[in-house]
Computed example of a mutant assay.
Amino acid sequence: MSYRRVRIAGATYFLTIALRDRDSALLLENVVVLRRTLRQVKHRYPFHIDAMVVLPDHIHAIWTMPKGDVDYSKRVGMMKAQFSRALPQSEYRRASHKQKREKGIWQRRFWEHWVRGEADFRAHVDYIHINPVKHGLVLRACDWPYSSIHRYIRDGFLPEGWATDMPLKDEDR
């Protein structure tokens, strides 16, 4: 059985893109390369980044595709490939990675969710911004430097102390 992705032209999608090694900090160690890669992909295939957070081993993002365009998969693939090519060659690669000309940095698949309406959008933006707190990386969401929360605060959509009084559930600690 193959997985079928939702493809709606001009739609908004919540994405999770993860490294194969979930104990890695590769994304933070190379955040400048990741930002440059995203700019290059956006230049070639435009889309809007509504919200985003870069964590040590994965990215959460909300992307809105241009009117008439459905191909977020192409953009994710380009981002992963260009980021991987910009890094030094790793010592070991499995045969399947060599055959597909992959470095084996990323999980082969990514997760997407079609954002359905304003409440769904808001819930996913909040999820993105609280994620560094949820993972124990900072105590306040606004203290994480690799997050769109700073744009939301600057533009007046969120107060600087957003979610500081939000109790975390036991499973989120």
Rank of each mutant, 00 (worst) to 15 (best):
residue 47 F to C: 12
residue 47 F to P: 03
residue 49 I to K: 04
residue 49 I to V: 13
residue 50 D to A: 11
residue 50 D to H: 13
residue 51 A to I: 08
residue 51 A to E: 05
residue 51 A to L: 07
residue 54 V to R: 01
residue 54 V to P: 01
residue 54 V to C: 06
residue 55 L to M: 11
residue 55 L to Q: 00
residue 56 P to N: 01
residue 57 D to F: 05
residue 57 D to N: 08
residue 57 D to C: 07
residue 57 D to Q: 03
residue 58 H to T: 02
residue 58 H to C: 00
residue 62 I to C: 06
residue 63 W to S: 02
residue 64 T to D: 07
residue 65 M to L: 14
residue 65 M to R: 07
residue 65 M to T: 06
residue 66 P to Q: 13
residue 66 P to M: 13
residue 67 K to D: 11
residue 68 G to D: 07
residue 69 D to A: 09
residue 69 D to M: 06
residue 69 D to G: 07
residue 70 V to C: 10
residue 71 D to R: 09
residue 72 Y to L: 04
residue 72 Y to A: 05
residue 74 K to E: 04
residue 74 K to W: 03
residue 75 R to L: 05
residue 77 G to W: 02
residue 77 G to K: 07
residue 78 M to S: 09
residue 79 M to W: 09
residue 79 M to R: 02
residue 80 K to S: 01
residue 82 Q to T: 02
residue 83 F to A: 01
residue 84 S to A: 12
residue 84 S to D: 00
residue 85 R to D: 01
residue 85 R to Y: 10
residue 89 Q to H: 12
residue 89 Q to Y: 13
residue 91 E to K: 15
residue 91 E to T: 15
residue 92 Y to H: 13
residue 93 R to H: 12
residue 93 R to G: 10
residue 94 R to C: 14
residue 94 R to S: 15
residue 94 R to D: 13
residue 95 A to K: 15
residue 95 A to M: 14
residue 95 A to N: 13
residue 95 A to I: 15
residue 96 S to W: 13
residue 97 H to N: 12
residue 99 Q to A: 15
residue 99 Q to P: 09
residue 99 Q to W: 15
residue 100 K to P: 05
residue 100 K to S: 12
residue 100 K to Y: 11
residue 100 K to W: 11
residue 100 K to D: 05
residue 101 R to M: 09
residue 101 R to S: 11
residue 101 R to F: 14
residue 102 E to R: 15
residue 102 E to Y: 14
residue 103 K to F: 13
residue 103 K to M: 08
residue 103 K to V: 05
residue 103 K to N: 06
residue 103 K to Q: 09
residue 104 G to F: 06
residue 104 G to K: 01
residue 104 G to S: 02
residue 105 I to D: 00
residue 106 W to N: 01
residue 107 Q to H: 02
residue 109 R to D: 08
residue 109 R to N: 08
residue 109 R to I: 08
residue 110 F to Y: 10
residue 110 F to D: 00
residue 111 W to S: 02
residue 111 W to P: 00
residue 111 W to E: 04
residue 113 H to I: 02
residue 113 H to C: 01
residue 114 W to G: 00
residue 115 V to I: 09
residue 115 V to H: 00
residue 116 R to C: 06
residue 116 R to Y: 02
residue 117 G to E: 00
residue 117 G to R: 00
residue 118 E to K: 06
residue 119 A to M: 03
residue 121 F to Y: 13
residue 121 F to A: 06
residue 121 F to L: 12
residue 121 F to C: 03
residue 122 R to H: 09
residue 122 R to W: 08
residue 123 A to L: 04
residue 124 H to R: 07
residue 124 H to S: 03
residue 124 H to P: 01
residue 124 H to F: 04
residue 125 V to R: 08
residue 125 V to F: 10
residue 126 D to M: 09
residue 126 D to N: 12
residue 127 Y to I: 05
residue 128 I to A: 00
residue 128 I to H: 00
residue 128 I to M: 03
residue 131 N to I: 08
residue 132 P to F: 08
residue 132 P to N: 12
residue 132 P to T: 14
residue 132 P to H: 14
residue 133 V to M: 10
residue 133 V to E: 11
residue 134 K to E: 08
residue 134 K to D: 07
residue 134 K to H: 14
residue 135 H to E: 08
residue 136 G to P: 12
residue 136 G to S: 12
residue 137 L to W: 14
